[in-house]
Simulated scan of single mutants.
Amino acid sequence: MTIYLPIAELPVAIFSIFAMGIAVGFISGMFGVGGGFLMTPLLIFTGIPPAVAVASVSPYMAASSFSGALSYLRKGMVDLPLAGILLAGGGVGTVCGVALFTWLDTIGQVDLIIRLSYTVLLGGIGFMMLAESVRAIIRTRHGGKAQVRRPGTHSWVMRLPLKMRFRRARIYVSTIPVVALGWMIGLLGAVLGVGGGFILVPALIYLLRVPTTTAVGTSSVLTVATMAAATVLHAASNGTVDAVLAFVLMIGGTMGAQFGARTGQTIRPDYLRLLLALLVLSVGLRVAFDLVRTPADRFVVTHVETPE
């Protein structure tokens, strides 16, 4: 059964897209990640134009993160002042990202930049996660203990000016790196269609020394806000949000996340990180392969409007 995507301007098998939403939702629930960094490349692999894939994943990410954000808010695991400053930077980053996306689209380079960015981003993160998880497994097998970094440990970040105390996160830190982190996540979300949690959470934990549960909860709030803003801006500026595609992905993702969360609770954390590292690395390598392989259609005819 096929369905026509009005913005992508092509017919797709609805059950394939639905199954993709279930699969990525399952992975998101099992590993505790947003899944946008996997959904966008998978949509591109199926023939969806990268510009439409990035914009249409934004509402999927906002919807999939909304329930998690509410849950963390109810449990008091969100530092609202920290989230507010991150959102300030994230809002500016989202506007900058959409402007950059629009500019790249006008010069015809948005597809190439998206593919190159995913190759570098997923490849780098995948290798780092793989090395860290292998070291953790080896350390566990030899009877070693994981190194725990206490909140509030001093580093170069702590010596920056404009400090502010975040009581829920138990840190006293400059607002400069907080705003910078929010800006970077907003920019990545707008340009690549990723929630940024797989970057923001480690940064909050290892750079700012925020407790893990508070970092995850605060990150989920930022993901909802930045992805919702990116959806509106993409729809208004570029018209690349395919509502039909996003709706099918949302339904599948919501269903898959429930089963993934149950499965993830039965797997050891170190092996869970190893599986996620291999998954991220494999997707990054596939995107890199698509960049260098000979395309099926070597010539593409496009219509370019010129000013009169």
Rank of each mutant, 00 (worst) to 15 (best):
T106K: 14
R209S: 10
V57Y: 08
P161T: 12
A277H: 01
I125C: 05
L116Y: 10
L233W: 01
T231N: 02
V201D: 10
V134L: 11
G252L: 03
V221Q: 08
P50G: 06
A257F: 01
G284I: 01
V98E: 02
F166H: 07
L274D: 06
L222H: 10
L130T: 04
F15L: 14
L274Y: 09
N238C: 09
S155F: 14
L10N: 02
D105L: 14
F127K: 05
A246Y: 06
A63L: 09
G91E: 09
K145T: 00
A215P: 11
V179K: 03
T2M: 01
L73Q: 12
I171C: 09
T102L: 04
I107M: 15
L208W: 03
V300D: 01
G29F: 02
G284A: 03
V92S: 06
T46L: 11
A63S: 11
L279F: 05
D111R: 11
W156F: 14
G186Y: 05
S237Q: 13
A235Q: 09
T266H: 15
T240F: 12
G34K: 02
H154T: 12
V248W: 05
A23K: 01
G144N: 00
T263V: 14
V287I: 12
T46A: 10
S16K: 15
V120K: 02
L222E: 05
T240Q: 12
S58A: 15
S58N: 15
G256R: 02
V232A: 03
M129K: 02
L278Q: 00
G84H: 13
L291K: 13
L86Y: 11
E132S: 07
G84E: 11
I114Y: 06
Y206I: 13
L207T: 12
T94N: 05
F127R: 04
A55F: 09
A131D: 03
A83E: 13
M250F: 13
T140E: 01
M184G: 09
V78P: 08
I267P: 15
E132D: 14
P6E: 14
R268K: 15
I85K: 12
T302C: 00
T212Q: 09
G90P: 01
V191K: 03
T266V: 15
A225K: 05
V241E: 04
V301W: 00
V224C: 10
A13M: 10
A235L: 06
T2L: 01
G217I: 10
A229I: 03
S28G: 03
N238W: 07
S155A: 14
A23D: 15
F66E: 08
S16P: 05
L82N: 11
K75N: 11
S56V: 04
H303Y: 00
R135Q: 11
L86V: 08
S133V: 05
R159M: 09
V95K: 06
D111C: 12
Y206N: 07
T254W: 02
V300F: 03
I27F: 15
P151C: 04
I125V: 09
Q109W: 14
A23F: 15
